[in-house]
Design a protein around this nucleic acid. Structure first.
Lengths: 170, 170
DNA sequence: CTTGGAGTGTCAACAAGGCTGACGTAATGT
DNA sequence: ACATTACGTCAGCCTTGTTGACACTCCAAG
């Protein structure tokens, strides 16, 4: 495994800092960190009838108000059946509003209601608190590196969604 | 709340680089990156009868050969029933071997068989390939920052498991 | 030796949240 | 007119998580 290889890694001399062992550690760090990342909102959601899927939908509707179902589908990368199950409950509970499109009446544009925004705020406050602490402890340079690596890890398609959201939000 | 804030952020002047908007972007980056992170092994696993839970078990058994079920339970953070279901199939399929403990015969020590190691290799090769590319593109400084932030994001307990593995493996 | 408790395995039942396939409807584009 | 798109929905399946209950083995303490 990460054994009898000499100092020259499997990918060339410019990558000496990337031993298999270090990559393994990074993989584990990613695993444990993602658990921390979702832990706080998850704790809040269990008390309600919601799960992580609801959180994701709420997050991205808040981020791109008026987005269509199809657009959300692409961002989340799930089937319309999966998304619809979540959306149906959010609409029924009055957290999300679905408006028929003006130009194209086949489309449904999604918006958070006041109650939806309130929940979004609660969830993202919890999530941001941990991120803020972690970022503060790590420092600005580490944060910059963190984001650089995350962007490089994305699938190109997903990266495009990310960039679009990032630019619309700033 | 996250609205009409002036230049003084909600957490003090030394955190000016942490606006809510930047935290939101980091949250989204984490979401999209984790998808990329798991995509490659997931693609391999669907062809077999296995899922992500099997991958995780195989990964950590490979990392800490001879680990007990209870130890693995703590690392993975699932119930013994969930883990057992996965472990049972892996043992039945000859990828994992369970040996009764010598000192304490109640304990089962888990090892990968040759076949198990082969699958682990395949999966982690796929996962490492993406990480390696991302790390190469981002550069050593970014990678260092990446790991610093990830470690700061973990729950303290999980961070302890991570540190233990990290130190045993180096 | 008996007993309590820890470590483990297993059965049953259930829920969340993925998936596919199929079908219906309305609106749009050709 | 007809095909396609966008959406909703029903039915059924899978993985992976959960609780609760129970049995077994073994260690250690009384």
């Amino acid at each position: 495994m990460a054994d009898g290889r000499g100092p020259a890694g499997s990918s060339g001399e410019s990558l000496l800092f990337l031993t298999d062992e270090q990559l393994r550690q990074a993989i584990e760090a990613m695993f444990f960190a993602y658990r921390g990342f979702t832990a706080d909102p998850d704790r809040i959601l269990v008390d309600m009838a919601y799960g992580r899927a609801h959180h994701r939908a709420i997050h991205f509707i808040n981020r791109a108000p008026g987005t269509t179902v199809n657009n959300l589908l692409n961002i989340l990368g799930v089937t319309k059946q999966s998304l619809n199950r979540v959306l149906r409950t959010l609409i029924a509970d009055g957290l999300v509003e679905s408006r028929v499109g003006r130009n194209d009446k086949r489309e449904r544009h999604l918006f958070l209601t006041d109650a939806g925004r309130a929940l979004e705020q609660t969830l993202s406050d919890a999530q941001r608190a941990r991120m803020r602490t972690a970022f503060r402890d790590a420092g600005p340079d580490a944060v910059a590196g963190f984001r650089t690596v995350l962007e490089a890890m994305m699938d190109p398609e997903m990266g495009a969604s990310y960039t679009r959201l990032k630019e619309s939000g700033s």
